[in-house]
């Protein structure tokens, strides 16, 4: 298989601001076997903003998120139709290598899942396999500083990442994604396994991170969506019901179903 042209396509496309959005989906349909989990999703994600996707369990929000960097295709029964445009390139184009997509579109998962390696290696490994040529110590320090973890771990970089607390581990996972200098960070309920203090730290972090990255966050927690996001999308049963500025969506929902959900009448 010849993947080199793909690399060029992304890197050429990257500098240009040809697309209004950092990421855009067009008529995205995702199936698990015969059942459709995401239904004709068409939406754009603004550059350097935090976009939250909310909705009750099973509404397809995590599925949609995982499809943006082609992580969803790891599920054997999943099938994707439609387009996900990243700098004008459809990441589902037959010539596109998913490995390349994931390098530009990073991901943070529900449960912290650091590598079974040292803190240093957790950050450096991804950069190394992607052919990073700079100074690794510098990269590790910079990445950890971006997630406000440097001061807590700078004296134990050689220790196992599992020695950290859950909240620290999750910030390490964010740093791991940031170290690749991605364009977009996908976060799949990143605080659902964390205590309130760790959650607050990560929410504060998002404000900093959005200066450089486009962030798309899936969350169960409507307060969290209200606190951290600029734009919010509400999904229900695989459909995008409403997508608006966060304040607008929470205080002035257009759709009755949105209103019912945010006022806690179902979900």
């Amino acid at each position: 298989m010849q993947h080199t042209p793909t690399t060029d396509r992304f890197e050429v496309a990257l500098g240009s601001e040809e697309s209004a959005y950092a990421l855009e989906t067009r008529n995205l349909n995702i199936y698990y076997g015969d059942s459709r989990a995401v239904n004709e999703l068409s939406m754009g994600f603004d550059r350097r903003k935090v976009t939250a996707i909310i909705g009750p369990s099973g509404c397809g929000k995590s599925t949609a998120l995982r499809s943006f960097n082609r992580m969803n295709e790891l599920i054997a029964s999943a099938r994707t139709e439609g387009e996900v445009l990243f700098h004008g390139v459809n990441v589902y184009d037959p010539g596109v290598d998913p490995v390349q997509v994931r390098r530009w579109i990073g991901m943070v998962f529900q449960k912290p899942n650091p590598f079974s390696k040292s803190i240093h290696e957790n950050i450096a490994w991804g950069a190394r396999i992607n052919g990073y040529t700079g100074d690794f110590d510098e990269l590790v320090e910079d990445s950890l500083k971006r997630v406000a973890l440097w001061d807590e771990v700078k004296d134990k970089l050689k220790e196992s990442a599992y020695a950290l607390s859950g909240g620290q581990q999750q910030r390490l996972c964010i740093a791991r994604a940031v170290a690749l200098k991605p364009e977009i960070l996908l976060m799949d309920e990143p605080t659902s396994a964390l205590d309130p203090i760790s959650t607050a730290k990560i929410e504060d972090l998002l404000d900093e991170l959005k200066k450089q990255y486009t962030i798309i966050i899936v969350t169960h927690n409507m307060q969290q969506a209200g606190r951290v996001s600029d734009r919010t999308a509400f999904m229900l049963l695989g459909d995008l019901v409403e997508y608006a500025d966060t304040k607008e969506l929470f205080f002035n929902p257009r759709d009755e179903r949105t209103e019912n959900y945010i006022s806690g009448r179902f979900g």
Binding site: N69, M71, L74, V99, Q100, R102, R103, G106, M107, F109, K111, N113, P114, F115, S116, W125, G126, I129, N130, C173, R176, A177, L180
Partner: peptide, 26 residues
Amino acid sequence: PGSLRQSSLAVGATKWQTIRYHVLPA
């Protein structure tokens, strides 16, 4: 666990790199 494989793939590792550096050691 699948989460270990996902964490590796999500930083742009290939399938073989994931197996070689994470799945096999684990």
